[in-house]
Design a protein around this nucleic acid. Structure first.
Length: 336
DNA sequence: AAGACGGGGTT
DNA sequence: AACCCAGTCTT
């Protein structure tokens, strides 16, 4: 096989990107902190979901120092609703690590960036390329799709062999300069043209380089585990305009949820709601607390008015929004 | 290598 | 209802 004509591939890609690339907030800055925030938020989360969180976050925590000195509760609150809350804890810890550095600046060295908590191969490369314009490869969902099709890779991409193939392909395509422009363009091609279900091949600037036989069938992934059904019971305890919540030490570590019940009470729930969770489907039942309910050390009574300031995961927030208005209170509880 | 980890949007 | 998403970390 002849070597792939990387430079002839890149030229029309770049031209296309200059004309059609989106004006995204994190493309208007080269501030390493802002880029890092955007990359944490964009892990497994779509652009449209991230934009308002990103804007609010930068207003609330404008730099590494302000984030480093914030309380974890404030950090989780600003992340509330985005999911994968370990990202928020890791970003917080990364900011505290950076703030200890001389000058409080992010290192521009790939290995040092990758050593920060919550930063893997992709995010380290993304920060290096988008903040510092380094020519390093990056592979995320968009680029993975583009490269699997470009090379007609018909084996699963979410295996060691698949990942090796994608990262080495990304390296082959990489120019020696202008890493940011190249990587942005490749990613944008996946986001706007090389779509998951119905790729717009007729509009693709690099179609003549593409080896895909049936692009819509790529990339392939390993089979997912079947969905598991779970039931969880929680208490709704309201006393004198205060509600009993407990701080999670498990799934939503650090966030406040309705108190967990060890057993299902022998009465009908006030509310049931279903929410998907990874490959689980969880039915959350909320029961009125009986008079014998005794708070433990993880639990606290909160004034209803204070709820809006607490980090509460979405399923529990939905339960509260449903139950509190039923109590004939002037609830000031609202998503902020 | 496999599983855990959210939430919302799209098909 | 299944699939998708600017992935990372722990077993």
């Amino acid at each position: 096989m002849p070597p792939f004509p990387a430079s002839r591939f890149r030229q029309p890609l770049i031209t296309w990107f200059r004309r059609h690339g989106r004006d995204l907030p994190w493309r208007r800055t080269r501030d390493p902190y802002a880029i890092l925030v955007s990359e944490f938020m964009l892990q497994q989360t779509q652009v449209a979901t991230v934009v308002p969180y990103y804007e609010h976050w930068l207003a609330r925590f404008p730099d590494f120092a302000s984030l480093a000195r914030a309380d974890e509760s404030a950090v989780l609150h600003a992340w509330q609703g985005l999911g994968y809350y370990a990202r928020a804890r890791n970003l917080h810890a990364a900011a505290q690590s950076v703030a200890k550095n001389v000058g409080g600046v992010l290192p521009n060295d790939l290995a040092k960036i990758a050593a920060l908590p919550g930063i893997g191969r992709y995010t380290a490369g993304a920060v290096a390329t988008f903040a510092f314009d380094q020519a390093v490869p990056i592979v995320e969902a968009n680029i993975a799709r583009v490269l699997a099709r470009l090379t007609n890779w018909e084996k699963p991409i979410d295996t060691a062999a698949g990942r090796d193939h994608l990262w080495s392909t990304a390296s082959v395509l990489l120019p020696k300069k202008n890493g940011r422009l190249h990587n942005s363009a490749l990613m944008e091609l996946g986001a706007l043209i090389c779509l998951p279900r119905r790729p717009l091949c007729a509009q693709c600037p690099v179609q003549k380089f593409c080896a895909a036989v049936e692009p819509a069938a790529l990339p392939r992934k390993r089979a997912k585990p079947r969905q598991v059904l779970l039931h969880e019971s929680h208490a709704f305890a309201l006393r004198r305009e205060r509600i009993l919540l407990e701080q999670s030490h498990a799934r939503w570590r650090g966030m406040w949820i309705l108190p967990r019940l060890a057993a299902v009470p022998p009465r009908s729930p006030l509310l049931q709601l279903d929410f998907p969770f990874t490959h689980h489907r969880i039915t959350l039942s909320v029961f009125a607390a009986t008079r014998s309910f005794l708070p433990n050390e993880k639990q606290r009574w909160f004034p209803i008015a204070q709820l809006a300031e607490l980090p509460v995961p979405s399923p529990h927030r939905r339960a509260l929004e449903e139950l509190l208005p039923r109590q004939n209170l002037c609830s000031t509880f609202a998503r902020t």
